[in-house]
Write a protein that binds this DNA or RNA. Structure first.
Lengths: 104, 104
DNA sequence: CAGTTATATTTCCGTCAAGTTATATAATTA
DNA sequence: TAATTATATAACTTGACGGAAATATAACTG
């Protein structure tokens, strides 16, 4: 799964919410339907996309399908931001420097 | 500009490329047109969106409009990833631990 | 086995974003 | 001032996405 596709997948707010909910623990489809305000097919559709991106894994327990977070693919996207971090970090440094100077 | 909107804006590959190019230095619209394979109106359209999100600023030099990166708004999105970082960080720790054990 | 529960898939529809072409605006130059 | 250069905006088209409703599949229960 390439960077473009991953960004696109994460651009959908409900999908980000699903991932957020899965951070705590694995969840059944029904739980997610209850948590988000979306129809069951809507949830399943998003889960399929997350599955294909390997952002989640499933295991079956009787009729229930339990989804678990797999955060690894996020690392790639996270890395895109790395070169930009220095900008707000520097800005912060500047502020600190300014505050230090004001103390004199 | 809220998180949802920012994610959506960054989901577009050409917009990310524009930001990437602006990391080095400010650029005119014409330069960006030359760098990306998009029509001039296409570039201008993306620049407008980036401007509204305050991800870029403009200054005018004669006919040229020079765009400069403003990375600050990215911080908000970057923060979304923070709670997920431990997952791949832990995975890395596990690997290191495993490697250490293998050395015995 | 019939009915029920849990989830997935299909189909259809409306919306919206991204691209292009054409046009407008603004500054420069001959 | 007319022509040219640089950029922005408008109008239009098209494709893809997200949502709901309907249907299919699979497992459980009585």
């Amino acid at each position: 799964m390439n960077e473009d596709k991953l960004f696109e997948i994460l651009a959908e707010p409900n999908r980000r919410k699903i991932l957020d909910y899965l951070r705590a623990r694995e969840r059944s489809v029904g739980e997610l339907v209850a948590l988000l305000s979306l129809s069951q097919p809507g949830i399943s559709k998003h889960l399929r996309i997350l599955r294909q991106a390997e952002l989640v894994t499933v295991r079956k327990d009787a009729q229930q399908h339990l989804y678990r977070l797999n955060a690894e693919p996020l690392q790639g996207i996270h890395d895109w931001f790395e070169p930009y971090r220095q900008y707000w970090t520097n800005k912060l440094d500047d502020l600190e420097k300014q505050l230090d100077e004001e103390e004199q």
